[in-house]
Nucleic acid binder design. Structure first.
Length: 152
DNA sequence: GCCAACGTTGGC
DNA sequence: GCCAACGTTGGC
């Protein structure tokens, strides 16, 4: 399946992913719906659009690829982390992460306006008002069209 | 198990 | 900084 992950670029931008030689652990997801996607549905080799949110240049910044799935989110065990969960133990833990590797950085950020201009993308979850999900699936058609837009 | 209050997300 | 949307919490 194809995916879209949101990130605040001051936390982990497409450049940070590009700079990480062995990939990046996508941690800190603390929403059950998003967690279930990470746990049950994200597959090795899946492509992931990286969306920069809450920043100067909002939009799709690049592409990554999944290289490890359904791993224990390390931040839930780290008391100093904002994502620490005191209820998590080595035997029983609620939060999952995946690992992604850099594929490409788009020459230009694909803005929400760019996406809204495509009628074929009208159903994209990202474009829904009030959408707060940070991990969301994408149809193959949506992914193909987005990647086509990056070549335009 | 309902639901109001509250907190967070995130585009603008 | 505003505010709509929505998830979570907690009293009952």
């Amino acid at each position: 399946m194809a995916w879209l992950f949101k990130t605040e670029p001051n936390e982990c931008s497409i450049d940070d992913i590009a700079a990480a030689k062995t990939g990046v652990i996508w941690e800190g997801v603390r929403n059950y719906q998003a967690r279930n996607f990470l746990r049950d549905q994200v597959q090795n080799g899946d492509l992931v659009l990286i969306h920069h949110s809450s920043c100067k240049q909002i939009g799709l910044a690049g592409l990554a690829k999944v290289t490890a799935t359904a791993i224990a989110d390390p931040s839930q065990f780290q008391p100093e982390s904002p994502y620490y969960d005191a209820k998590a133990s080595a035997e029983r833990w609620p939060w999952y992460a995946v690992k992604v590797e850099f594929v490409e950085k788009f020459k230009k950020i694909i803005t929400l306006t760019d996406l809204r201009n495509q009628t074929a993308l009208a159903d994209m979850q990202l474009l829904r008002k009030g959408n707060r999900l940070s991990v969301m699936p994408l149809t193959k058609q949506e992914m193909d069209l987005v990647l086509f837009l990056t070549k335009a």
